Deep mutational scan, measured.
Amino acid sequence: TTVHVNGVTYHFPNPEEAKKFVDRVVKEAGLTVEVKGNQWDVE
């Protein structure tokens, strides 16, 4: 699973890890998340 955060790419072994990361980032920074298949874009 690939997560893009403001142009930076993070790779995770599974969607659960990616979701935990995204949830944390979104809570801390108040960002928006767009999910496209296995790819997350966070802005």
Score class of each variant (00 low, 15 high):
P13A: 13
G7A: 02
T32A: 11
G7R: 02
V25M: 14
V42A: 09
E17S: 06
P15Y: 14
P13G: 06
V3K: 00
V25W: 13
Y10N: 00
K20E: 09
A18V: 01
N14V: 01
K19S: 05
T32M: 09
E17P: 00
N38M: 05
T1E: 03
P13Y: 05
P15W: 14
V5D: 01
E28P: 07
F12Y: 01
V3E: 00
N6H: 05
E34V: 14
A29M: 14
E28M: 10
H4K: 13
H4D: 05
V35Q: 05
H11D: 03
E43M: 13
D41S: 09
D23K: 04
E34K: 09
E17A: 09
Y10H: 03
A29W: 14
K19G: 03
T2H: 09
D23A: 08
E16C: 11
E17R: 01
N14A: 02
T32Q: 10
G7K: 02
E17N: 02
T9Q: 06
F21T: 00
T1R: 04
V33Y: 06
P15T: 10
H11K: 05
P15D: 12
N38A: 06
K19N: 04
V25F: 13
V8W: 07
V5M: 10
G7M: 02
Q39M: 10
N6S: 04
E34C: 15
Y10S: 01
K20R: 11
K27W: 10
A18C: 05
W40Q: 07
V26D: 04
V8F: 10
P15H: 10
G7T: 01
Q39F: 10
K36P: 13
L31S: 09
G37H: 10
N6Y: 09
E28I: 10
N6T: 02
R24T: 09
G30S: 06
D23C: 15
V26E: 06
T1P: 03
Y10F: 06
K20I: 10
V42C: 14
H4L: 14
T32W: 04
P13H: 09
K19E: 05
K20S: 07
K20L: 09
N6Q: 05
T2I: 12
P13L: 12
K36G: 14
V26Y: 13
V25P: 01
Y10L: 03
T9I: 13
W40P: 08
K20N: 08
D23Q: 07
N38S: 06
E17W: 02
E43W: 10
Q39I: 13
T2G: 01
T2L: 09
K20A: 12
E34I: 15
P13N: 12
V3Y: 02
E43C: 14
Q39T: 08
K20H: 06
H11A: 03
G30E: 05
G7V: 01
V22H: 05
V26Q: 10
V8E: 05
K36L: 15
R24G: 05
V5S: 02
N38V: 04
W40A: 08
N14G: 05
A29P: 07
A18N: 00
R24W: 14
F12I: 01
T2Q: 05
E34W: 02
T2A: 05
N14K: 02
N38E: 14
V8T: 06
R24K: 11
A29K: 06
T1C: 15
E43R: 11
F21C: 02
E16F: 10
H4P: 01
V3N: 00
A29S: 11
N14T: 12
V35K: 05
Y10I: 03
D23Y: 04
P13T: 12
V25D: 02
N14I: 02
V35T: 07
N14P: 00
V33D: 09
L31V: 12
F21G: 00
K19C: 13
V33H: 07
N6K: 04
K36D: 14
N6C: 15
E17G: 02
L31Y: 12
V22M: 11
V35S: 04
N14M: 01
K27T: 08
L31K: 05
G7Y: 02
W40V: 08
F12T: 00
G30C: 15
V35M: 08
T32Y: 04
K27E: 06
G37N: 10
V3C: 13
V33N: 08
E28W: 12
F21K: 00
G30F: 06
E43Y: 14
V8Q: 07
K20F: 04
V22E: 02
L31I: 12
E16Y: 11
V33T: 09
H4F: 14
N14Y: 02
F12Q: 00
G7C: 12
P13C: 14
Q39E: 13
Q39W: 14
Q39D: 12
K27S: 08
V8L: 07
E28Q: 08
E16Q: 07
F12S: 00
T9W: 11
V8P: 00
V22I: 13
Y10D: 00
G30K: 04
Q39L: 11
G37E: 12
G37K: 05
Q39S: 11
T9R: 08
K20D: 06
A18T: 01
G37F: 13
A18E: 01
E43I: 15
V5C: 15
K27A: 10
T1K: 03
T2P: 02
E34T: 14
H4T: 14
E16T: 06
N38C: 15
G30A: 07
F21S: 00
K27H: 08
P13D: 13
T32I: 12
A18H: 01
G37A: 04
W40N: 07
G7L: 01
V35Y: 13
T9N: 04
F12R: 00
V8M: 09
T32C: 14
V3T: 01
V26T: 11
V22C: 12
R24Q: 10
H11Q: 04
T1D: 02
V42E: 09
V35R: 03
H11Y: 13
K27V: 06
W40L: 07
N38G: 11
P15S: 11
G30N: 08
P15A: 13
T9K: 09
D23T: 04
R24I: 07
A18D: 00
Y10A: 01
E34G: 09
W40H: 08
D23I: 05
V8S: 04
E28A: 08
D23G: 03
V5F: 14
